[in-house]
Simulated assay, not measured.
Amino acid sequence: MMQRSPPASSSNPQVKYLSNPDLPESVRSANNSFINMRKRRQPESEINDSIINVIENTIEKKLNDWKDDLSSAITESVLKSVQSVIEQEVKKMSLSIRDSFEELSVRFNTFEKSLQFTMERQDTFEKRLEEVEKKIKLNVAEERQIQILQDKVDAMEQQARSYNIEIANLPERRDENLLVILEKLGCVIKHPINVQDIVSIHRVPHMEKTNNRPKNVIVRFTTKIIRDNIIAAARAFKELKSDKLLVSGTIQNVYVNEHLTAKNKQLFRCCREEAKNNNFKYVWIKNGTILVRQTDNSPIFAVRNQQDDKNKIKSQKC
């Protein structure tokens, strides 16, 4: 029969057997517990690993908790800081916007007042402009009427001189006899002049006091026909000289023309200058009217005022 336990021997006196019936109950119970512990005991390395794992997990959890708390605290602090900064900036912007708005409001009020003042002045200007336009229209109408009346007066003055001739550049002598000179003129131009045909004869001063030429001689005849015939005869006689009229002194060219008004004389002078600048060949006077002709074959047209002087001559040239 096989034995489960080795027998006791003197060489192994510490070996005790649980099945010994002579052992007390307490010892037997303690031995049984020890046997059971020996059966459940684990290796030491595994225990250490388990402890380490527990500690690591605990530390990691604690660190994660601290991290979360710290992150939450930092996030909250940052949020509060950012929120504070934003609130300050918003407050500054709000104050700036309010100041800008107040300034803009003041400037707008100023602009509105200026605009209102400008509009009032514009209304005043418009009213004054309307009044000025009315006055200008009245003045234009009045000026036209005045011009018409002036033209009529000039025409009447020129008509009153239709019996007269004007002898220009005739040398003056203190003891001169104009009637004798006039009779000699008739003989030279081969158109006798009778004393009975003369109404008056005299010299007239120049309009320009600085003019040193001899005063012109004005002769008034009894009829316009006599006047026209004498002028035609004088123009047909080329180069009428003062010595042929028995006038002593320096020999001068003598001119016999129609007696023009001061206005027509000035117009005739300007017309000759304008015609010369535009290569016109003929400028003359007939019955108090200034006539212009560019060439021998060109049409003849009359010049009655300064506007005609410039426009008609330039248009004829073109």
Results as ranks from 00 to 15, higher is better:
D154Y: 01
D154F: 04
D154H: 00
A155F: 14
A155V: 07
M156R: 10
M156I: 14
E157Y: 06
E157V: 05
Q158L: 03
Q158W: 02
Q158K: 09
Q158F: 04
Q159F: 14
A160H: 08
A160F: 08
A160C: 04
R161G: 05
S162G: 11
Y163T: 10
Y163H: 14
Y163C: 04
N164W: 07
N164R: 08
I165K: 01
E166G: 02
I167N: 06
I167M: 04
A168K: 13
N169S: 09
L170S: 11
P171H: 02
P171S: 07
E172W: 05
E172C: 07
E172P: 04
R174Q: 10
R174I: 11
D175M: 05
E176T: 02
N177P: 02
L178P: 15
L178W: 02
L178I: 05
L178S: 10
L179A: 06
V180L: 12
V180E: 14
V180A: 10
I181Y: 00
I181A: 01
I181K: 00
L182K: 00
L185C: 01
L185V: 03
L185E: 03
G186T: 00
G186Q: 09
V188M: 03
V188C: 07
I189F: 01
I189V: 15
I189C: 09
I189K: 06
P192E: 15
I193Q: 10
I193K: 09
V195Y: 08
V195R: 15
V195A: 12
Q196A: 12
Q196P: 06
Q196C: 11
D197P: 07
I198W: 08
V199N: 13
S200H: 12
S200W: 08
S200F: 15
I201R: 03
H202M: 04
H202L: 04
V204P: 00
V204E: 10
P205M: 09
P205I: 09
P205D: 13
H206Q: 02
M207P: 01
E208P: 02
N211F: 05
N211V: 03
N212F: 12
N212S: 14
N212A: 11
R213F: 11
R213S: 15
P214S: 08
P214W: 04
K215F: 11
K215Y: 15
N216G: 09
N216H: 03
V217P: 02
I218K: 09
V219R: 04
V219A: 07
R220G: 00
R220H: 07
R220P: 00
R220C: 04
T222R: 12
T222H: 02
T223K: 05
T223P: 01
T223M: 07
T223L: 04
I225N: 09
I225T: 13
I226M: 13
I226S: 10
R227N: 07
D228F: 01
N229P: 08
I231H: 05
I231Y: 05
I231N: 13
A233F: 10
R235I: 11
R235A: 06
R235F: 12
R235Q: 14
A236N: 15
A236M: 11
A236Y: 14
K238Y: 13
K238D: 14
L240F: 08
L240C: 12
D243C: 08
D243H: 14
D243Q: 13
L246E: 01
L246V: 08
V247Y: 00
V247A: 00
T250W: 04
T250V: 13
I251T: 11
Q252Y: 08
N253T: 14
V254L: 00
V254R: 00
Y255G: 05
Y255K: 12
V256P: 06
V256K: 02
V256L: 03
